[in-house]
Design a protein around this nucleic acid. Structure first.
Length: 324
RNA sequence: CCCGCCUUAGCUCAAUUUGGCAGAGCAUCGGACUGUAGAUCCGAGGGUUGCUGGUUCAAGUCCGGCAGGCGGGACCA
């Protein structure tokens, strides 16, 4: 008995770690007791899979460790509705995306599902219509505020999108939905409405958004402010060197965020090679690094050099897997 | 379906009145300055003027057609 409780605690810890919120922890705990439990995330196929995506993929890996079956929706129809191109083009890059996600370390039994394979079924469509009746326009639009590509010339597609995402959860029979914080409003819509369709609400887990290398709020494939998981070493170094990185500033600093999410999650320390005249090499824990940087004792360029070298190393398995 | 207005650089818009070499700001790229980036200066690149036909020596500008957007009207057994 004691052992079981301990286990649940450590599993809860793995799942919760690095997230901004779990809605709700109590429900998650209940889910953990199920034998078969499914976690899901959907991605619009994208020309480049970047570090922002990787944060959520790593959370899916955590969930696999915690005993969840993971389903990844390659949301080609959603991308289509969001004006990302022709369905053919989108399907093509979804193949590449699948390889990228695998390269990040998801286990073999990860299930990849192409949205268009089931999202035009009659049953599915009827559920979308049903949901359309009980959802107000303003709420549907509001849920898309951080997802839609262009704020002007709104298409009807924009409000179909969140309805479909809700029905996806029903059809994929998910216990848990994962997404970046921008997905929050759609997830809340799902939690409110799925019971009306006779399905229980999924637990929702939201991860932080990674700042763009330009310092803007969100790393995004449509802006040139991302580092792709399969970027060449010299590209990674170049992009980090060009990144926004104010001295002494630890909030919203993309370089420190990258270190946090992709270096200190799997290593105790970061080696910073520094010319003798600036004080020589350092090997720092995250805590030491942040204190030193905040105090102005670590120059941004040294930070960048250290993080760039290490990130190149961290992403090597991804490049090897993808043979790039 | 009808009427009106709009469409110019990646973005926001000038230039239309009176036809005469298509411009600015922002963004991008490069240089300077900082032991990073940013900020700030300096410089550069960037265009099928929605598409198409016509008038003219000459069309972003005038006329016709088409497409897209916005607003209104009409229809509503």
């Amino acid at each position: 008995m004691m052992v079981t409780i301990m286990d649940i605690d450590s599993v809860m810890n793995i799942i919760t770690q690095g997230t901004l919120e779990v809605v709700t922890p109590e429900e998650l705990q209940d889910k953990l007791e199920k034998d078969q439990k499914t976690a899901y995330i959907g991605y619009e196929p994208s020309g480049k899979v970047h570090l922002g995506h990787a944060i959520t993929v790593k959370k899916m890996i955590d969930l696999q460790k915690a005993g969840f079956k993971v389903k990844i929706l390659l949301a080609d129809l959603h991308a289509y509705l969001n004006g990302k191109g022709s369905l053919e083009e989108i399907k093509k890059i979804s193949e590449y995306n699948m390889e990228c996600f695998r390269a990040l370390g998801l286990s073999e039994d990860t299930e990849f599902i192409l949205g268009s394979n089931f999202q035009t079924d009659e049953d599915y469509t009827m559920k979308v219509y049903e949901l359309a009746i009980s959802t107000t326009l303003t709420r549907a639009r509001r849920s898309m505020a951080q997802i839609t590509r262009d704020a002007e010339d709104h298409q009807v597609a924009e409000v179909i999108y969140p309805l479909m995402q809700v029905v996806d959860m029903l059809f994929l029979e998910v216990d848990l939905a994962v997404g970046g914080m921008e997905q929050r409003k759609i997830h809340m819509l799902a939690r409110d409405n799925l019971p009306k369709l006779g399905f229980s609400s999924p637990v929702c887990i939201h991860t932080p958004l990674l700042h763009g290398t330009d310092g803007s709020d969100k790393m995004s494939s449509s802006k040139e402010n991302f580092i792709a998981i399969d970027d060449q070493p010299k590209v990674i170094i170049e992009k980090i060197k060009k990144s926004y990185c104010p001295a002494g500033e630890t909030e919203g600093n993309p370089i420190l965020e990258i270190a946090h999410h992709f270096i200190f999650n799997e290593r105790e320390t970061l080696l910073i090679q520094r010319p003798e005249k600036f004080g020589g090499n350092l090997e720092l824990t995250q805590e030491e690094l942040i204190k030193m940087y905040a105090d102005g004792d670590l120059h941004p360029l040294d930070l960048k050099n250290g993080v760039a070298d290490c990130l190149v190393d961290v992403l090597k398995p991804v490049r090897d897997y993808l043979k790039v």
